[in-house]
């Protein structure tokens, strides 16, 4: 019961924050609304009993990506120009609305195989054995590490003064 109430509150606040990101003219206020949306997504992970992912969401998105975004807004001085729409506003709205309708129809019409087993808690041990254990995703973890290193080096090379 408590989880249901939490889901509805988080869903309404999250969708409202996402709409604010899209509709606000002020870029800095849009970034603050995006941070609120990311926090509500972390709350949704908790209602899905994904405790480790909720922590990672707060650390990576709320702590890292949002700071990068605000830094980019400050460096590019776009606050006074504002976030305007381009000439594709109506076609983009139509595409998004049609996509939403098709997705909701297919999701509601599909008979999902719901499992009644209780979820693993805490999830860290299962996640660790899946990521690092035998028969897990260890190759993907190594590739992700190489990708992050390449991304850091690429970002440094791009923004370095000539």
């Amino acid at each position: 019961m408590g989880v249901d109430i939490a889901f509805w509150i988080l869903a309404i606040v999250g969708v409202a924050a996402a709409l604010t990101v899209v509709l606000l003219r002020n870029v800095f206020h849009a970034a603050l609304a995006l941070i609120l949306c990311l926090v509500t997504v972390a709350g949704l992970y908790i209602t899905l009993s994904a405790d480790f992912l909720a922590g990672v969401q707060i650390l990576v998105y709320v702590g890292g990506v949002s700071i990068l975004l605000i830094l980019a807004i400050m460096l590019t001085r776009e606050v006074q120009h504002g976030s305007l729409s381009n000439k594709f506003r109506v076609p983009a709205f139509l595409v998004a609305a049609i996509f939403l309708g098709v997705m909701i129809y297919s999701m509601v019409a599909t008979p999902w195989q719901i499992s009644t087993a209780s979820p693993a808690a805490p999830t860290t041990a299962v996640l660790a054995s899946n990521l690092l254990g035998e028969g897990g995703f260890i190759l993907a973890v190594e590739v992700a590490a190489a990708l992050l290193l390449a991304a850091i080096l690429g970002a440094i090379v791009l923004v370095r003064e000539k």
Binding site: A11, G14, V15, A18, L19, V21, V22, V27, A30, A31, L34, C37, L38, L44, Y61, V65, L69, A72, I73, T76, E78, H81, G82, S83, L84, S85, N86, F88, R89, P91, A92, F93, V95, A96, A97, F99, L100, M103, I104, M107, V108
Partner: peptide
């Protein structure tokens, strides 16, 4: 359905916005 709604909002913003930083924010959504 919540995921589809959030994805559609982000899709609209990524297609319709003129500021590149706002497009990045919509991709994050």
């Amino acid at each position: 359905v919540l995921a589809a709604v959030l994805f559609s909002i982000g899709l609209y913003g990524a297609l319709a916005k003129r500021n590149a930083v706002v497009v990045m924010m919509c991709i994050e959504i």
